[in-house]
């Protein structure tokens, strides 16, 4: 078995690891797609109160609506029907982004095509097609208190996505704090791009081989945790 073929972390594990960092009372905005898996983790920490914000103006919504109980007027950022929680509030789109620009969102979790070692990331444009899909990503990336990224470590052809410098147009410069990939957990610090936790069976050398960015190995490097210490 070559290094690249070793078992990797599941998307749920990647998102669980990021969600573990959410603190009680945080306002959290989850991007469409993989990041929505973060909400599953919170069932394992019921004492943590997380307030979910969605760019279409919902503050404090609950899980996906069970079949037959959908309210056609209540959807999340992905257009999925969710349930209302007690205390939920609705605002219009301009106020929803006012919440974002004011810096009230404690963390936004997004997917990405590329992340660079200085914390730039790219998730809105691929070169083969004109235009891009920005949605609320630039407002969130530029203004949320923290940006976490969940992303596969390599492209389908094996090329690295964790780079010295993004090759695609960036969504925001220098904002990524924490990155979970299927190979581990990485923190972007003032010193550089730090490997904090690794997937089971992956050595720092194995991970560096799949990474263009230069890794700093944390002194307390450990296998990835998916439950609080």
């Amino acid at each position: 078995m070559t290094t690249a073929d070793k078992p990797r972390l599941s998307r749920q594990t990647m998102c669980d690891r990021l969600a573990m960092e959410f603190q009680d009372g945080w306002i959290v905005n989850l991007g469409v797609g993989m990041p929505t898996l973060c909400s599953n983790y919170l069932e394992s920490e019921p004492d943590k109160e997380i307030i979910f914000h969605s760019e279409n103006g919902v503050i404090g919504f609950g899980p996906l609506a069970p079949a037959g109980e959908e309210d056609r007027h209540l959807v999340n950022a992905g257009g999925q029907n969710v349930v209302a929680l007690p205390g939920m509030a609705i605002v219009h789109h301009a106020d929803s982004f006012g919440i974002i620009r004011k810096g009230m969102v404690d963390v936004t979790v997004m997917g990405a095509y590329e992340v660079s070692e200085n914390g730039d990331f790219a998730n809105w444009r691929i070169p083969v097609r004109k235009g891009g899909g920005i949605g609320g990503a630039m407002d969130l990336a530029g203004c949320a208190k923290r940006v976490f990224i969940a992303m596969e470590h390599n492209q389908r052809n094996g090329a690295p996505r964790v780079l010295k410098q993004c090759s695609l147009p960036i969504t925001a410069p220098g904002v990524v704090k924490l990155l979970a990939t299927d190979l581990g957990l990485f923190e972007i610090t003032e010193d550089g791009f730090v490997l904090r936790e690794h997937a089971p069976g992956w050595s720092p050398e194995d991970i560096q081989e799949q990474t263009e960015a230069e890794l700093i190995i944390a002194d307390d490097l450990r296998e990835i945790r998916v439950r609080p210490a």
Partner: peptide, 13 residues
């Protein structure tokens, strides 16, 4: 087409 970040689009309105 003109591509505008969603929050900027809303605030311009």
């Amino acid at each position: 087409a003109e591509l505008v970040p969603q929050g900027t689009l809303a605030e311009r309105m």
